[in-house]
Amino acid sequence: MFLFCTLVYAFFVFTDVVPLVQNKKWKVLAVYGVIFITAYVFTVLTELGVQLPSPLTPIGDLVASIVGSTG
């Protein structure tokens, strides 16, 4: 499972990252890198069983508090 995900990410490194470096698109590479690494970290964490907090939970609570007080 872990190997599978890493392979997929590796594939994208080959496909995208290397051409970016070649063409010296540093800004794009930076953005790419940040998002890429974030995604990879999350993936690893999920593999390890860490329960990542959902961004929707605070939204749900916020809506509930607004609607609850009016409705």
């Binding site: 190997l3 599978f4 392979l7 590796a10 594939f11 080959f14 070649q22």
Partner: peptide
């Protein structure tokens, strides 16, 4: 360099496929 890139990609794909069957 380009060839190595291509080979790298194909290798990844092959490995993934073998894991998926």
């Amino acid at each position: 360099m380009k060839k190595a890139l291509k080979r790298g990609r194909i290798l990844c794909v092959l490995l993934v496929i073998s894991l998926l069957s």
